[in-house]
Design a protein around this nucleic acid. Structure first.
Length: 669
RNA sequence: GCUGCUGUAGCUCAGCUGGUAGAGCGCGUCCUUGGUAAGGACGAGGUCAAGGGUUCAAGUCCCUUCAGCAGCUCCA
């Protein structure tokens, strides 16, 4: 006897074996038809999986209205895609085919090189399979038998996976649909007919088991929805996201450019982009001043020996520009980090505990030879400027300093309306040898970070082992770009290693008149100016708040008769410190407004005969439209106030959610 | 770095199975002098990414290099 409790509170009792689909059928044939899967006591199961035969259990039937059902259907769609590929091409080896945020993919090894030209054929074959509406049938077998089945199917990747990834499993499951049989954990929808609409999106290479020393597979990305409308909405969404891509907007709005002759991954800031960066730098400088930082400047190169001591040279030789070789063995490195230079400034004189904390800040430009395939607009580059600072403090000061660094980062992000970030604690992977320093020092640092962060209520906080810097654990502020790719912006890092005796042997004289070792904190609220501005362009979709807008106000003259008045107005705006231009072309006012709107100019001042007579301007707001006429001084004051307050009146709605990291292991095999 | 795709005017793109390059926007000149999202006419502008090859003939086919895009791997 089993008691089944449904979400509405009703309880049903059964003496026989029942399946979720049977319960659904009892309630009504419509529900039975709509049921795609079920949740039994928090575990998702197929609609045909028998329920337990005794005890009390909760049951929730999943239909296409439930978000869980979408992922299950997509997973089934991945099988349909794999089946289509196997029908069309010979020698297909199946790897993993999990669902991901917004869709799914399947990895294959096959001799045919897949390209977008193949998509229509694959999609047509998939449509056929969906139309046939064959059931997905689960087959549970002991591992020995599973192994034999995979061998018989000549699916060597699956065989390997059973031997390695699934070494612990005693029983394994397959799903069969027609001639297609795949080792798979499930779950699946009852039959393919429930797949409403799907589309192949892209093909890309992916390493087997994510290991770059293993063979590369071909990965097909696709998505599916229950309805065609949802699919189309999704595709429109993707198009919108592309339009706000900072690489597209950067070109359109003349913010930055990259020239192959200068070198890839090297950003040329155009005048308008430079204004945005300059305003952001000014903003950070003000914050630094308030928080007791001192500004320093250091050169762009340093001797290799410096980085041998710091460890950067040996640890990252692959991702650095090669050293500059001078006579007699002198070698210089383009600096990959600012910290060694700042350390030498700390060491320039003896320090007393009374001097600490010493906070040295610099907009320091660094160069890293990133892999060519990694370069991406402004977000992944080979030369960039960090809003960097290094804090040298006593052990007792660490928690307080660390906390205030995190607070500064939050303040800065908040000021820009950037609330969609998550916080990642990058800790050491104890099984890796890429880290310097003792395990004790690491534990101490990681514990200190956890303690500080726990009290701060940081959004989406997660600890990620293996994500630490080689010298210490860190707290990263991570944001997603317009297509869901995540980028690390702000970072605060705790470092017991560079100050150590094995590295730079930093000291200060304590109150006991003996030398002590300071602790270092590395921090950069923006991270890099390049990446930050790149992300910011997408955050605002190119529509910047007044204080950041490269061109803040444009004078639009109704007719050239009033050009003198307009020119005078433009001069007044410039004198007030506003970034102003005038449009004196012999165009109609409508055309001038249209151009200014399309260029996202925050304010337009329209002047004609009426305004010239009264010493007024007709103010047009980019967002609210025509505000009517006002005196010149009043208009200027209004704009200056908005600048001073760094007011953010509009942030573009996010186009896509952050990608959920998915290595394919969690879902299915 | 790896796999696949792409590279034509300042920008966005068209150019069929090889036969000496086209549109829209932008830009320039002229006409129009206007009142809150596109006035009109004319014109300039291209070593078809670079280099090599096949061919009577290459933007188009092949190879190499460079650059970009998507993803993977990496990321102090």
């Amino acid at each position: 006897m089993v008691k089944i409790k449904l979400p509405d509170g009703s309880v049903r009792e059964y003496a026989r074996h029942v399946r979720p689909i049977d319960v659904a059928a009892e309630i009504g044939p419509g529900l039975a038809k709509a049921t795609l899967a079920a949740v039994v006591d928090d575990t998702t199961v197929d609609s045909v999986t028998p329920l337990p035969s005794d005890g009390e259990h909760t049951l929730r039937l999943l239909t296409k209205k439930d978000p869980e059902a979408l992922a299950i259907m997509r997973h089934s769609c991945a099988h349909v895609m794999a089946r289509a590929v196997m029908r069309l091409y010979d020698g297909v080896q199946l790897a993993f085919g999990p669902t991901i945020e917004n869709g799914f993919y399947y990895d294959f090894d096959l001799p045919h090189k897949l390209s977008e030209a193949d998509f229509p054929a694959i999609e047509a074959e998939m449509a056929k399979i969906v139309k046939e509406d064959e059931p997905f049938e689960r087959i549970d077998v002991p591992r020995g038998e599973a192994m034999a089945m995979c061998r018989e199917l000549k699916q060597t990747l699956k065989v390997e996976h059973i031997e390695t990834g699934l070494a612990e499993e005693q029983r394994l499951s397959f799903y069969r649909q027609g001639e297609f049989l795949d080792l798979c954990r499930g779950r699946h929808i009852p039959s393919a007919g429930a797949i409403g609409a799907f589309k192949l999106l892209s093909v890309a290479g992916a390493y087997w088991k994510g290991d770059s020393t293993r063979q590369q597979l071909q990965r097909l990305y696709a998505t599916a929805f229950f309805s065609k409308q949802e699919l189309e909405a999704r595709l429109v969404h993707l198009e919108e996201a592309k339009r706000r891509d900072h690489r597209v907007l950067g070109k359109q709005l003349e913010l930055f450019t990259i020239n192959p002759l200068v070198g890839s991954g090297l950003i040329l800031w155009l005048p308008k982009g430079a204004i945005i960066r300059g305003e952001l730098e000014k903003f950070v400088r003000e914050e630094l001043l308030k928080r007791g930082y001192e500004t320093v400047y250091t050169p762009n190169i340093g001797r290799v020996e410096l980085y041998q001591i710091s460890g950067h040279f040996p640890y990252y030789s692959d991702s650095q520009f090669k050293p500059i070789e001078m006579e007699e063995g002198e070698r210089y490195l383009l600096k990959p980090m600012n910290c060694p230079h700042h350390i030498m400034i700390y060491k320039a004189k003896p320090r007393s505990y009374r001097d600490l904390p010493v906070r040295l800040a610099e907009f320091g430009t660094v160069y890293r030879y990133e892999q060519s395939g990694e370069l991406n607009g402004m977000t992944r580059v080979r030369g960039f400027t960090q809003d960097d600072a290094h804090i040298f403090c006593t052990e007792e000061q660490v928690a307080g300093e660390f906390r205030s660094c995190i607070e500064m980062t939050r303040t800065v992000l908040q000021a820009l309306g950037m609330n969609q970030y998550r916080v990642r604690l990058g800790f050491r992977d104890p099984n890796s040898d890429k880290y310097v320093g003792s395990a004790e020092a690491w534990d101490r640092a990681e514990n200190a970070i956890v303690k500080v962060c726990e009290g701060l209520d940081l959004p989406g906080m997660s600890i990620e082992r293996g994500d630490a810097a080689f010298y210490g654990p860190k707290v990263d502020f991570v944001v997603a770009d317009c297509i869901g790719r995540e980028w690390q912006l702000g970072t605060v890092q705790l470092d017991y290693n560079l100050p150590s005796a094995e590295r730079f042997a930093l000291e200060y004289i304590g109150s006991d008149n003996t030398p002590h070792r300071p602790v270092m904190i590395h921090r950069a609220p923006f991270g890099s100016m390049e990446r930050f501005v790149g992300v910011l362009i997408e955050h605002f979709a190119g529509v910047f708040p007044l204080w950041l807008a490269p061109e803040q106000v444009r004078v639009l003259v109704v007719s050239q008769k009033f050009e003198d008045y307009a020119r005078d107005l433009e001069r007044k705006l410039l004198a007030a410190g506003l970034r102003a231009t005038g449009d004196y072309r012999p165009e109609k006012i409508g055309a001038k407004i249209r151009d200014a709107q399309l260029q996202h100019i925050p304010y337009m001042l329209v002047v004609g005969g009426r305004e010239a007579e009264n010493g007024e301007v007709a103010v047009r707001d980019r967002i609210d439209g025509d505000l009517g006429a006002m005196k010149i001084d009043a208009a200027i004051e209004r704009l200056l106030t908005e600048v001073r307050e760094k007011k953010i009146r509009q942030v573009a709605a996010p186009t896509v959610a952050a990608a959920i990291t998915d290595d394919g292991k969690a879902n299915e095999y």
